[in-house]
Design a protein around this nucleic acid. Structure first.
Lengths: 236, 236
DNA sequence: ATGTGATTTGTACTATCGTACAAAAGATCA
DNA sequence: TGATCTTTTGTACGATAGTACAAATCACAT
């Protein structure tokens, strides 16, 4: 069923605005913000540089719109999955469900964009590495609530672990998640072709498995400053 | 004892070349490669822009020299620690020692630069996120051997885990390591001040504890395509 | 068909980028 | 001291950056 566009949602060519957004997302996610010029984006989208200015005013505005486009749906989906996960009775299964609720929306799409989830998450990873100011503001005020919700949920299913440890481990989870999306080829290379780093389903399973175990690790006894663990000399 | 410089290792001002390297390292690590101009670096080092060209020819050459400066010492230290770790008898302790041998040199300095280890590792994280070509080449040909050595060592102390899983989990380790250095403030924020994300010793302990547990997680039974794990519906 | 508002195009402006290069200044040693 | 080499400085050049803006073009209601 081909729907006739009501009035303003379609441009001359089929949605040039969307094409610009998609191209910018892809280029920013793979090359960083500063390495990509407005002209690069326009060319990749088959548009005129001035068209970018028309739709998004500035380059920062374009980045802002990319975030606006994805943050809502992704957080919504995470909330849904988290709520469902919290209803799982078995504690071990619940923990895994919670981790999965955090990981899955980052790989699969939160909205209807094809493959948009992984691409946007990779974009977030790159912006965070570059210390992008626009991204930093949005992230802190958009994702911190969600992060706290997950941390609390995990803490409830692991009451004997101090919250500080949970925070660290969920931080590690996000780092691992980011890095898997940034350099999937490294996994393929180091496994000598036995694993495919760009296989989202495989990455999710590996990540969930490893992360659940990490969360279940015994707590760090921060009370004991004296070193209890084995130490290895640096001299051969 | 003040040593008179033999001839060419000292410039007019005390080692301007080193100052430029340090400034570039710091700026690249916090803002990315493309966001930092040669003029920014020169100003931060108290040097003239032309001086950067004189010492390093191009901006890429400067980045290259930063890598050359650190890769050797860091890999050497890792090799030493790994060799020592492999001599640990107890399997559990050995695994922890191996992980520690991988993590510690990334935080503490591999060479004599003050705090240079963490700064350089953060630089590597940012360059990897930006997909920097110069960095990619050096990394692949400098760190892959070391990575393989660690993967093999871990595999030996966990023979029942398939190598593929070890690769994934060590990939997660590196991602977590990178991310801890990129945004330490996030840990402080999410823990509501209870943890200090920029405390290297604390980060190391948390990372080692979590990672050892992740490595010890049961293997992913990749033979069974039928889903065995609990799945949560996305609908509330 | 024609007028109107939305969009695209083409071009231009200023700022800043990486880099080159000649001149100045310092260091070294006969 | 003067000759020579190394390092620093100052300036300039072409390329490209982000953005602005007027003209051209399109979609569509009348």
């Amino acid at each position: 069923m081909v729907r006739k566009p009501t009035s303003k949602e379609s441009a001359r060519k089929p949605n040039m605005r969307e094409a610009i957004l998609a191209a910018a997302e892809e280029l920013f996610a793979t090359n960083g913000f500063n390495a990509v010029s407005v002209r690069d984006i326009a060319q990749a989208a088959g548009a005129n540089p001035g068209s970018v200015t028309y739709h998004f005013k500035t380059k920062d505005g374009l980045l802002l719109e990319i975030y606006r486009r994805h943050c809502g749906p992704m957080n919504l989906r995470r909330s849904e999955l988290l709520a469902a996960a919290k209803r799982v009775r078995d504690l071990q299964d619940r923990l895994e469900a919670i981790v999965r609720a955090y990981v899955v929306p980052a790989f699969t799409s939160g909205s209807d964009l094809a493959g948009g989830g992984a691409r946007f998450t990779r974009l977030r990873a790159v912006m965070s590495a570059e210390g992008n100011e626009v991204a930093r503001k949005i992230i802190a005020q958009t994702f911190d609530d969600t992060s706290h919700a997950f941390i609390d949920a995990i803490h409830e299913s692991l009451p004997h672990i101090p919250r500080t440890d949970i925070v660290w481990r969920s931080h590690f989870l996000l780092g691992a998640l980011y890095y898997s999306l940034v350099t999937p080829d490294r996994v393929s290379r180091l496994s000598r072709g036995e694993a495919d780093g760009s296989d989202a389903a495989g990455a999710i399973e590996q990540l969930v498995q490893a992360t659940v175990a990490a969360f279940q690790a015994p707590a760090l006894d921060q009370a004991a400053p004296t070193r209890r663990r084995p130490v290895v000399s640096s001299k051969t």
